[in-house]
Design a protein around this nucleic acid. Sequence first.
DNA 1: CCAAAAGTGTTGGTTTTACACCCATGG
DNA 2: CCATGGGTGTAAAACCAACACTTTTGG
Lengths: 226, 226
Amino acid sequence: MIEAYDPAAFPPLGVTVDLVLMTIRDSRLAVLLQHRDEEPYKGKWALPGGFVREDEGFDAAAQRILADKAGLPGAWLEQLYSFGDPGRDPRMRIVTIAYFALLPVGDLAAALSGRDDLILAPLDALPVLAFDHAGIVDHAAERLRGKLDYAPVAFALLPPRFTLRALQDVHEAILGIRLNKPAFRRRMLDKGWIEGTGEKETGGAFRPAELFGVNPDLAGFGTGPS
Amino acid sequence: MIEAYDPAAFPPLGVTVDLVLMTIRDSRLAVLLQHRDEEPYKGKWALPGGFVREDEGFDAAAQRILADKAGLPGAWLEQLYSFGDPGRDPRMRIVTIAYFALLPVGDLAAALSGRDDLILAPLDALPVLAFDHAGIVDHAAERLRGKLDYAPVAFALLPPRFTLRALQDVHEAILGIRLNKPAFRRRMLDKGWIEGTGEKETGGAFRPAELFGVNPDLAGFGTGPS
DNA sequence: CCAAAAGTGTTGGTTTTACACCCATGG
DNA sequence: CCATGGGTGTAAAACCAACACTTTTGG
């Protein structure tokens, strides 16, 4: 039931967007963390985030924060979950809308160079995180695993052209298990998400693999789901 | 980036929880709606909801609002999505954390009798809804469909003992398609979610069906996921 | 003993998995 | 021409859907 609306009646309360920006580095899932220079949790690592501006929607805020840290190429970005327990920030009540972002590790390199307050930490060896951010990261990893085989999320972690081997590496890193090569190959091709460009990988030893790209008429890719 | 925390710097802003309480009546998905007696959207129908209290988490707020409308037996309750576009409420900025609840229609009957501000509207024949609530309902229906075959959500729409035919009716209502009886039966039994009690349906004509119940060691059932 | 719905066995087709093999390239 | 990883054919296995049949009850 919507009650009376007396602005003075509302206790001070902040709304932020926190970003779980994940990528794959060295075949392991990793998340972008930012060093905290102030209390509380000074010296700890936290998810990058920021307050939602007065005339800004959540999606726009998430995009702005993402653009702050990395350029914004074809990043996957989607709302994850909202956290608002009264004690989660010791100073005042802060509600955070967590977003979930995926980027190829190459696109993050530029952003990370020259910023020593940002690190990329593997999910299986996270430092102690500020606030309830460890739980938020768990949530994001779970969501990523769950969506992997019914939504085209893996491509957001790869450059525009990739080999099937690279795609399989991404899946294996996310799921934490080894997959069968021929079965994986056929499953991917049957989904219709990717198509072969005629081009071949270069520079490697041995037989060069074909480069694939995302099917251009894949609805919604590049901006997230729905 | 977490900035300075000056309470005065925060524009007035409300956080509410809105409930998409769904059930199945006459083999159709239906949602609980509440009549608005005040502007804005006076006379329209809206999702039941309310402000999150100062020292209350979102889950607790959702449970409280649910208890307000119906008793709270083994209802499924889970956070759905958050909406906070600047213009969604004409008076001031309201952020709403939408929750998704499931209840057997029988448990709703008591709550609905004697309250003429509450109705149960079929999803395929919704009235005009206040605010952005139509979009929230769509979101919830989509989520329900998506979870149906990998999470034990259907049981939250049935009484503790039910026949396989009733369970199939629930699935057919949610998916909007007819299902094959033997295949459905075996899929359900193989999942291990349900187990036969020795009891039989009573009162019906013809051969009585066996009554099934949810497997007691199904983690998390009754309070939602994870 | 008939009608109607519950419940089960069997079959046929599709999909998935695993293994084996061939192909292409650098050294 | 050998080592290595890319790519494909095939056969076994698992899965799923549909039909037909049997079972159980009320009238």
